[in-house]
Write a protein that binds this DNA or RNA. Sequence first.
DNA 1: CATATTTTGTGATTTGTTTCACATCTTTTT
DNA 2: AAAAAGATGTGAAACAAATCACAAAATATG
Lengths: 227, 227
Amino acid sequence: MKQITKYVIKNSLKRIFLYRACLVRLKLMGVERVYSYTLANETGVNSDQVRKDFSEFKITGNKRGGYNIDELLEKMESIFHRNKDHNLVLIGMGNMGQALSKYSRFVQRNMNIVATFDIDPFKQKQRSDLPVYSMNRLKEIIDRFRVKVAIIAVPEISAQEVADELVRHGIKGIVNFAPVLLKMPPDVVVNNVNLCDELESVIYYVHKLMKVDGIKNLELLYRDMKY
Amino acid sequence: MKQITKYVIKNSLKRIFLYRACLVRLKLMGVERVYSYTLANETGVNSDQVRKDFSEFKITGNKRGGYNIDELLEKMESIFHRNKDHNLVLIGMGNMGQALSKYSRFVQRNMNIVATFDIDPFKQKQRSDLPVYSMNRLKEIIDRFRVKVAIIAVPEISAQEVADELVRHGIKGIVNFAPVLLKMPPDVVVNNVNLCDELESVIYYVHKLMKVDGIKNLELLYRDMKY
DNA sequence: CATATTTTGTGATTTGTTTCACATCTTTTT
DNA sequence: AAAAAGATGTGAAACAAATCACAAAATATG
């Protein structure tokens, strides 16, 4: 049974990403131990929330002693399964696909695009650090590298078809850059990334901010923006 | 006064984007009138929520008659200021920057990147449909095209510096692809797009789904994912 | 070693969001 | 023209998330 797979990253999870980014930076600066209020200051959330979030993800510290950065980071890595390697496939080698295929941060975070795919044979010949295969080799690669997660960067017209094929071959998670809501079985996770929407929402809030008069309304707006 | 500018798109706003995408599709299919449950089915939210969201954004329909697609779309366009053109600048012509500069959907939605910038003179000479300027022409372009919103696609090391300069020249909204939390004055809107986080969160939920046994836990998980 | 201080972790409270339920208006049917 | 049916719009209720507040633990101090 297929259904619309619209999935939103929980805010608490987003904040965990935030905390981690700060921890990495602090560690580089030589800091060894942090307190909930350290992270609060660095990330703009309040310290109660930091602790509540940690509690949700079963992260504990030392009463009075705060948190040891290394332990925290290790805990977070295990939460996100970063201790393991993750093989990915990328479908669609247009603009966005090519940029993603060269995006070095994925590798730094143990996420490896093992192969890319495109229907256009010309793109398959193009110079690229990664192999560009035609779609008929999809199953072979997914099986060989035990791929569970795919990135879709194809035109919207073919996104659903591609997604269906991926799922048939065992893919369980999709980051979808095509502006379509995919209809998927309920055991497949889909995260839609829509760049236009990201931009438009900024434009929306900028207009709202410019129209605001008086400090009280400004505070209301910040609340609205979940500042 | 600068502060961490961490900003989250409200879920109701995200759903409005969703509704709009559906409406556009339905219109192409020749549909003229929709009901709250039509949109509900198409987007996977429930019909009460559709109506509540519309109410939040002051969108009204006809009792019994549902909503006229053209009117709805027009209303939404005015909410997002799509009736006007929006000039953007893009800073950083690395992988991601180059992909974004060619991203045709921005133009389709009345968002025009009028110029791109990079510190590397080589990239400035590279073949591109858009001019690639060095940073010292930033002010001139921002003024000439009345640019209010910028896209940052520079390495994380220089993101804060670039953002500061943008704000000095009057930029009020930023879509930031660099994995850094920018410290900005409170009247500047920042939307951080972090591709690694998007991928990792999918990996996180995929692992969670695979570990789930029994239908009850599955439902709990869906709730957790705000399915 | 007792007391003071600091910070965590978590129930209790408040605030925000989603769902429910129904009055209201509009159209269709008889 | 009255009754029935269908959809909206919105208070009320239920649920979820964020903040408050404080007991408990760990460390520091005298």
